[in-house]
Design a protein around this nucleic acid. Sequence first.
DNA 1: TATGAATGAGAGTTCATTCAT
DNA 2: TATGAATGAACTCTCATTCAT
Lengths: 195, 195, 195, 195
Amino acid sequence: MSDTEQPIHPRKLEIVEAAVACFLENGYHQTGVRDIAAKAGVSLGNLYNHFKGKEGVLAFIAQIEGAELAGFIAALSDPADPRAAIEQFIEGYAAYVSLPENALLGVEILTEATRNPAIANVFAENRDRLIDALAHCLEVGARSGAFASFNDTRAVACVFLDALEGHGLRSLSLKNEDHTTSKALKSFLINGLRC
Amino acid sequence: MSDTEQPIHPRKLEIVEAAVACFLENGYHQTGVRDIAAKAGVSLGNLYNHFKGKEGVLAFIAQIEGAELAGFIAALSDPADPRAAIEQFIEGYAAYVSLPENALLGVEILTEATRNPAIANVFAENRDRLIDALAHCLEVGARSGAFASFNDTRAVACVFLDALEGHGLRSLSLKNEDHTTSKALKSFLINGLRC
Amino acid sequence: MSDTEQPIHPRKLEIVEAAVACFLENGYHQTGVRDIAAKAGVSLGNLYNHFKGKEGVLAFIAQIEGAELAGFIAALSDPADPRAAIEQFIEGYAAYVSLPENALLGVEILTEATRNPAIANVFAENRDRLIDALAHCLEVGARSGAFASFNDTRAVACVFLDALEGHGLRSLSLKNEDHTTSKALKSFLINGLRC
Amino acid sequence: MSDTEQPIHPRKLEIVEAAVACFLENGYHQTGVRDIAAKAGVSLGNLYNHFKGKEGVLAFIAQIEGAELAGFIAALSDPADPRAAIEQFIEGYAAYVSLPENALLGVEILTEATRNPAIANVFAENRDRLIDALAHCLEVGARSGAFASFNDTRAVACVFLDALEGHGLRSLSLKNEDHTTSKALKSFLINGLRC
DNA sequence: TATGAATGAGAGTTCATTCAT
DNA sequence: TATGAATGAACTCTCATTCAT
């Protein structure tokens, strides 16, 4: 967000990594600050030198998760071939969001966000930028005749994200990979764009 | 499920109602057993006469949530007009799943399910029955020429549920109702069924 | 104690048996009234129709334990052959007191007695009668020249009980039977009586 | 045992002292962790920084109790005059084990040990070393002609400890000091060693 | 007698956080 | 930065007991 980013202390990253591991294994609320510090090999007090607290750690993770969307956004902006761009996005984002670690962290962040404005903001902002990029790509494609033309491209973009993320979340309860549903979802979304 | 169900003690229902209210307001982990008991107007110890514990309460809620799907399932089974049935389901399920209380409880149950087999089972079972009913309806519609014919109707049914539930979940972070996205989603899904 | 003993309700005995089983398995304090009632197949409330409470159950057990000493006492009173009587007592009491169930219950009762006068009384009374009988036997034997003559036969009787019971208690921590120590103890005690 | 013992935090000792006082006054199970912390003038949470829990405190006490046996053990090893060493041991150990605080703690630890392997180990280990030392002394005495020669000196050592500890335990229920029994016990044990 | 729902104090333990070193 | 002892409120759950039925 800001260009005045100061270099991040390596210890801070170690703590975040440890926190992610803990959250994935036991969930956000089941994880204690002690657990994080222990797994990071850091003293309990020192964790508070790097973060505002447990919540601060989660907010930082949400920030990072958001940064990981930058790749998708970049690929969708100014696409040479909108249809290919969309298809690649669907493929890639479905894979990204179905990774257990991403799905699990996402839902932990989501639930926390409903009660925590600070985290909710980070979350919403990230998502907004992704929707913009996707909507932009849909518009470009519509202009070039590659897709049908939609009144509200942002709404369609939302539908795509909802569907893909809904799918990712469900993959949490289904331990086994279900490729058939995944394929069905992708083709369903792409078919929905035809003129 | 079973016909040998013994009548449920009214106090048990009072406790569940109180728990739902608490969970919605503050979240599962932020809610203490004492909070539930207090809101239910029941002594702390007595709560444990009716439930195995906090987790037991959530499991019971999951069971109830599942029972609420029975209406949708019934409407999808043996449909006179498959297309109308599907459309009504989409409309109704989107509304159901976008109600904050349902969405919030659903995500709480989902996260808990990833760590708690007992709850996961209830959850998975309910969903499975809904998918069956939806897939069945798609098949009937395909045979009557109302829909396109799909290789794997369960997969398509999954796509529908994923999309609708994904939409419901997202409505959590967006406090304002967004009807336009909701409408876009519905028409997108229905369009996807055309021959 | 009293000759006006009314017949004991069979349910009462079932409860006592269940309580003994629970105490042996988990200890007095680790056993809940619920556990006892459950194991006895009796409702929780009904247990309080038969006993004054958890403590009442233990007091009753202490009483029964005391009654079991009656056999030893009888054999020591008015002995034809004091030496044989003593030897048989040592043999029998060592066996009795080394039975894990007796040892364990004994120590539970003992600890409880240090803080609970009611139980302490039952306990002390039982022991007193046993010491009397043993001392009496020692006196008879001394008069007949079978044993050495002691100034304070009750003190010697105490020594015998202390040693035997101490041995029984220790058998608690040593899971394996140690017959060699047991034999050594017996011969040591008997040797101590020689003129 | 080990020379690599790190220095014990003084607060830890304060807590142990408080715990001992509480256990003596009210018994192990009747004492709450809060009581210990309060008596030690320590916050509840901090107690858990120093001990694994209530059980951990008891285990530590058991360890200390064991260490107190070191004096007896030292006096029995390599004795100039075995008879005098034994007599002094009997005298001293009888006094030690009849101190209400030692007897009470001992029996609390004993009962807990029957259900708690960790504590049982500490307990058994301590006792074993004491038996070894006593048996050793008996052997030395037998060789020098001071005592009768026993086949199994460890068994005789056990008899001594059983008798002395049994005596100590019983002194719990008898609030008044009974010196006569105590004297009878000692002379009985010593007489048992004569050739 | 017999039942089990109801009570609420109390259990042991963990929590996120602070702060003197 | 880094440490870990210190805090005390909060946690879930169990307890022995009572009482209306």
